[in-house]
Simulated scan of single mutants.
Amino acid sequence: MLGRQFETDSMRAMRKRIWLSLGLGAATLAGTSYIILNSAIFNPAIAQTAVALARNFRPDPVKLQGRTGGSVSMTSLSGQANCRGFASEQPNHTINLTANFPLVDFLVYTKNVNDDTTMMIKGPNGLVMCADDEYRGRNPQLTRRLPEGSYQIWVGARNANQSVNYTLSVSEIKQK
């Protein structure tokens, strides 16, 4: 049996800042160390989710649902030629890591084998990471050691304004 995880003062303060900045209610799931705030009520086409994760979070992986869409190239959003696909100007998700993580694995997948998604993550200190087809030659996946901080995640599609339902899976181990 796992020991209880307690919300620290800094986690509580971060949750309050996120909650106040979004002007939304916050739901803390009992027995877990993450908070999900969903602003989909304002624009369901561009659901933005903010999640705060502490080390050893449960459940692992955390799975977030979303939908691609947008006409902005990931190349222009990132400033890097290796970022493929199209997304909206706003990130789909924000992950706030409350500590340094030895490893975080981000994986995007869909139910339809013909869907072609891409991913871009912007982190603290100008860090930009892009992914396309790393997982089994089909889905975007990024696995890295990451410092504490806020990470904005865009999930894009191969074509402009293409709407694809996806799952973003975040884990502390490499997902296979």
Rank of each mutant, 00 (worst) to 15 (best):
N114S: 15
R58G: 06
V128K: 03
D115A: 13
G3P: 02
I36M: 11
D116Y: 04
T118E: 07
G31N: 09
S88K: 00
N139L: 08
G69A: 04
T28F: 08
L97P: 00
R138F: 03
C83F: 03
F86G: 00
E172A: 09
L77E: 04
S78N: 07
Y109L: 12
L64C: 06
G23E: 04
W19E: 15
Y135L: 04
S76N: 14
S73M: 02
T117L: 00
G123R: 00
N82F: 03
G79N: 15
P91L: 05
F6R: 08
T32F: 07
A160K: 13
W19N: 15
G66S: 06
F86A: 02
N114D: 13
S171P: 15
E134T: 01
M1L: 12
R55E: 14
Q175H: 03
P147E: 15
I46C: 05
Y109F: 10
Q141D: 04
K174F: 02
M129P: 00
N38Y: 01
P140A: 08
P61W: 03
L127G: 04
D105W: 00
N92T: 02
D60V: 05
P140W: 02
M119Q: 11
G79C: 15
D60N: 15
N112Y: 06
D60M: 08
R4N: 11
R144W: 07
L107P: 01
G137V: 05
R17M: 09
M74D: 14
Q65G: 06
V170S: 02
M1S: 12
K111R: 13
E134P: 02
I121W: 03
T98S: 10
S76G: 05
G69L: 03
P124D: 12
D105Y: 01
F106S: 00
S39N: 12
A30T: 12
P61L: 05
N92G: 15
T167R: 13
P102W: 00
E148S: 13
S150C: 05
T118H: 02
S21Y: 04
A45V: 07
S163Y: 14
Q48K: 07
T28V: 10
A52I: 10
R4H: 11
T167Q: 14
L77N: 03
R158V: 13
A157M: 05
F42S: 07
A50D: 13
I35S: 09
P140C: 08
R144L: 06
M11H: 06
L97A: 06
M11P: 00
S39I: 08
L103I: 12
S39D: 14
N56R: 09
R136L: 11
A50E: 11
N92S: 14
Y166F: 15
A160Y: 00
L29W: 11
N56L: 06
